[in-house]
């Protein structure tokens, strides 16, 4: 997490009394989001995602079998049901691996979220672009003590970011932090490091 706490060249330092600086920017001096150590999701997320995945796979198998029985016969239902039931171990393996590739971090000026077992994605949402923050939890998530954080940016649903698998206290603390940042009228001073408040709030 601390790997990214270097000072940006345009930041005013203690020895720099000038109100204006115009140092050249090189790509090497820019804060790098890719080296930020991400916070893992809650440990309860793995059983949650495996359970919901298994339930979906069972429903899928049942629907396929029933359909095959309606349009074919019992042998068709059994055969296709067996093929469809292969989705059960697949989703269980996927669910087991999912938390390994899922993580999040709050920096001074943005929110980072990485996810995906096969197709991996890293999404960075600048705090200046967040218009609205929500926390949400479904009945099964409540059962596992989980909550998700939803960030909405302006201009439609394309720029949304949802962080799954947070503990409620973590999700609420991040939400409060983000809302405070959104409310602050003045643009924050930039140094690209990891937000200390976010870091505290982010530990699972």
């Amino acid at each position: 997490m601390n790997q990214n706490q270097h000072t940006h060249p345009e930041q005013k330092g203690p020895g720099n009394d000038s109100p204006f600086s115009n140092e050249p920017i090189t790509p090497e001096t820019l804060p790098d989001y890719s080296v930020v150590e991400l916070n893992p999701v809650a440990t309860a997320y793995r059983p949650y995602v495996m359970l919901t995945g298994a339930f979906s796979a069972l429903v899928f198998t049942a629907v396929v079998s029933f359909g095959a029985f309606l349009f074919g016969d019992f042998r068709w239902a059994l055969g296709l049901g067996l093929v469809a039931s292969a989705s059960l171990p697949a989703v269980l393996i996927h669910g087991w691996l999912d938390p390994r590739y899922r993580g999040w971090a709050v920096r001074d000026h943005d929110l980072i979220h990485a996810y995906g077992v096969i197709w991996r994605q890293t999404v960075v949402l600048p705090l200046a672009r967040i218009q609205h923050v929500e926390t949400a939890t479904g009945p099964i998530e409540r059962l596992f003590g989980l909550m998700r954080l939803q960030c909405f940016s302006a201009g439609g649903a394309s720029a949304d970011l949802v962080i799954h698998g947070l503990r409620p206290e973590t999700a609420l603390r991040i939400r409060t932090h983000l809302l405070e940042r959104i409310r602050s009228a003045e643009p924050p001073e930039y140094h690209g490091g990891v937000d200390q408040e976010g870091e505290t709030a982010g530990h699972e």
């Binding site: 989001y33 890719s34 096969i118 197709w119 991996r120 994605q121 890293t122 999404v123 960075v124 949402l125 600048p126 672009r129 940016s153 302006a154 201009g155 394309s158 720029a159 970011l161």
Partner: peptide
């Protein structure tokens, strides 16, 4: 508004 890096296998 958002930066996303996507990688397939």
């Amino acid at each position: 508004q958002q930066v996303r890096v996507h990688r397939s296998p």
